[in-house]
Design a protein around this nucleic acid. Structure first.
Length: 441
RNA sequence: GUGGUAGUAGCUCAGUUGGUUAGAGCACCGGUUUGUGGUACCGGGGGUCGCCGGUUCAAGUCCGGUUUACCACCCCA
């Protein structure tokens, strides 16, 4: 037998039902917030990703040369595709652009828990709006999606940070602009690395004694409220007027963000945590990640503002904010809490017949199906007992018995399996009867 | 890319210091039951013991390689 390729997945009907249930929930939650679904290409020019993230990411991509000598890659994420799609039609799109996609993504890496080579992601983005309102909506939709899957504030939370604030802080600390992104890289790893490693990395970039800078940076990790952010900057005592302007402006935006989230009922669902920087180079402002509480696992979702990506890919200036959520980690989380979703299935009827009534019964099966009623029957000639058994095994809710007695009266016995209740219904009334039970179109 | 652990039926596993024809439960199929299901009892099908090689009279069992999975690093969209 051939085996599935490493890191790729197959979904048997039972798992597929969970998957569909998850997708249905995602889709519904975003439609509620006024987002429209879109789809991009799964295969993209390799340069689209090199352009954005640098050459080293090529090793993690599923990439190859096609028969037309084109260097191509299976998409590892949606954002560059989306940025290009929006950039191409930027002037024709009504703003804000509120789009979501549920699609497969690929990366060639060693597998482990919560990580495969093929995964499905929900991508939610708002483009064309630079104001904080878009950040609020983005974070809010993430919370809503989780809530509607059955996750409450005891089960997950969002860690909220701000790359812009870090850049201001680094300016205030006197770090040259050209070195700031490198320093952000070090900050991103601070929790994982030892203090010694961090100090060395920082010295290498900035030079000289960095211990006071390091402790100032670390003190920003402790900050848990907007007031504390304000106090942290007050303590720095930056003399430059222009920098003070920036600090004041950013804090005002933080205040707006927090108060809007509170009024949307998001209190308890998020924490300010400036240790989140996020590795991707294209993030520019607020960034955030969703985590399960009380369990060490991968982020459930992550996102943030990326105001320059559309332009970087050849489009016009187009501010954007968005996030992505993977199906692997989310399914794992929902399973852990015993709240796996299921695809919604319509009620089904099973038609029981014998040789003498087969023609009548089958012609009714045809009529029922045409009217949108799910109607099954056995492919075997077997006794009524067997057929009832099959009705159970195929998860039917109703059985229609076409026995000789019933058909002679031009009637059908209709039995509801769960209650065991059975009534005789005239064949001409059958559709109306089932319709009253919520079956059919 | 580095390291650790594991692979026996569709699933969960048992299989003694190497020893006849490799087992159990669940699931599946059939029967008890040719006009009424879920329960119960009885029966049945299903295995190159991941793959290749080695040691041995004899390998599911020991050794080497390989592959796959899981876990921890690395990295993270």
């Amino acid at each position: 037998m051939f085996e599935t390729l490493p890191g790729f997945r197959e979904f048997y009907p039972e798992q597929f039902s969970t998957r569909s249930g998850l997708f249905e929930s995602w889709k519904r939650s975003l439609e509620i917030c006024g987002f429209s679904e879109y789809e991009g290409s799964v295969l993209e020019p390799l340069d689209l990703y090199i352009e954005k993230s640098g050459n080293e990411i090529v090793e993690q991509l599923f990439h190859f040369v096609d028969k037309g000598e084109r260097k191509v890659a299976l998409r590892p994420e949606m954002t560059p595709t989306l940025a290009r799609m929006v950039g191409n039609k930027a002037n024709a799109l009504r703003k804000p652009v509120k789009w979501f996609n549920i699609g497969d993504h690929f990366r060639y890496e060693r597998m482990q828990k919560g990580r495969t080579r093929c995964f499905t992601q929900l991508n939610v983005d708002i483009l064309g709006e630079a104001g904080v309102k878009a950040d609020v909506e983005s974070i809010y939709t993430l919370i809503l999606v989780c809530q509607r899957l059955g996750l409450d504030a005891q089960k997950f939370y969002i860690r909220l940070s701000d790359r812009d604030l870090w850049l201001i802080a680094l300016d205030a600390l006197g770090v040259e602009e050209s070195k700031q992104s490198q320093v952000l890289g070090v900050i991103d790893k601070i929790e994982r690395n030892s203090e010694e490693q961090t100090r060395e990395a920082l010295e290498k970039i900035v030079g000289g004694d960095v211990s006071s800078m390091l402790s100032t940076i670390q003190s920003l990790f402790e900050v848990k409220s907007v007031d504390a952010i304000e106090a942290w900057f007050d303590k720095l005592k930056t003399p430059e007027v222009e920098l003070q302007e920036r600090i004041r402006g950013r804090i005002a935006e933080w205040k707006e963000l927090v108060s809007s989230l509170e009024s949307l009922g998001c209190a308890g669902f998020y924490e300010i945590d400036l240790s989140i920087v996020r590795g991707l180079a294209y993030y520019t402002g607020f960034v955030f990640e969703a985590f399960e509480r009380g369990r060490r696992s991968r982020a459930l979702a992550g996102g943030g503002r990326y105001d320059h990506l559309v332009k970087k890919l050849g489009g016009p200036e187009f501010p954007a904010v968005g996030w992505a959520m993977g199906d692997v980690t989310m399914t794992d989380c929902l399973e852990h809490h015993g709240i796996l979703p299921k695809a919604s299935l319509p009620s089904k009827v099973f038609v029981v017949m014998d040789d003498s009534t087969r023609d009548t019964a089958m012609s009714d099966v045809g009529l029922l199906r045409k009217a949108g009623v799910c109607a099954l029957f056995s492919y075997k000639r077997s006794g009524f007992g067997k057929q009832f058994k099959e009705a159970n095994q195929t998860n039917c809710d109703w059985v229609l018995v076409y026995g000789g007695d019933e058909v002679a009266e031009d009637k059908v016995s209709v039995k509801e399996l769960e209650s065991g209740q059975e009534t005789k219904v005239a064949r001409s009334e059958l559709l109306a009867f089932l319709g009253a039970q919520g079956l059919g179109d």
